[in-house]
Amino acid sequence: MPESKPRRKNTTQARAERQSAHAIDKPMPGWYKPVMFGLMLIGLLWIIVYYISQTLFPIPNIGGWNIVIGFGIAMVGFFMTTGWK
């Protein structure tokens, strides 16, 4: 009995499969995890210092924006967790 020919894959589908396989095999750089956790800790420490010093530190003249800066630094670290493997 004759065999049917295998279907040719769509070129975009084949390209996507190659790219996804390449991304999975790629190891994370050694600096990624320390930077990620470091940013989360620096953001937390920024906010803690702001509250403990009664708004005098880290930057005295910007007031409540110190909280925004602290959360912003921490959020960069949290966003980095999406790329962590």
Rank of each mutant, 00 (worst) to 15 (best):
F79Y: 14
G63L: 13
G77C: 12
I52Q: 13
N10K: 05
L45Q: 01
G70R: 01
P6A: 12
T12N: 14
P58T: 00
Y51D: 11
M28Y: 05
I59Y: 05
I62E: 07
F79G: 08
M28I: 13
I62P: 01
R15T: 09
G43F: 01
Q19D: 10
W65P: 00
M36A: 08
R18E: 15
P60Q: 08
G72T: 06
L56P: 00
M80H: 02
F79M: 14
I67P: 01
K33E: 15
R8A: 14
I69S: 02
V49M: 11
R15D: 14
T55H: 12
P27D: 08
E17D: 14
W31T: 03
A21S: 11
E17F: 08
A23M: 10
I47T: 09
V68Q: 00
P27R: 05
T12V: 13
G77Y: 12
P60A: 13
L56M: 13
M40T: 02
N61P: 10
T55S: 11
I47A: 08
S4T: 00
P29D: 09
M36G: 03
A23I: 04
W84S: 02
W84H: 07
P2E: 11
M1K: 00
G30T: 09
I47K: 02
A14D: 14
N66K: 05
W31D: 04
L41G: 04
D25A: 15
R15C: 04
G43L: 03
I69D: 01
K26V: 08
Y32K: 02
F78V: 10
N61W: 15
K33Q: 09
S53Q: 12
N66R: 06
R8G: 04
G64I: 13
T11C: 03
I69Y: 08
Q19W: 10
I62K: 00
D25V: 03
M1G: 06
F79P: 00
A14I: 07
R7T: 08
G43P: 01
Q19F: 12
A21K: 12
A74Q: 09
K5N: 04
P34N: 07
I69F: 14
Q19T: 01
W84K: 02
F78M: 12
G77F: 11
M1W: 04
F57N: 00
S53M: 12
A16V: 04
V76A: 09
I42Q: 01
G64L: 15
I48D: 05
K5F: 11
P6R: 05
T55R: 07
T55N: 06
T82W: 10
K33H: 08
L39R: 01
E3M: 12
L41M: 10
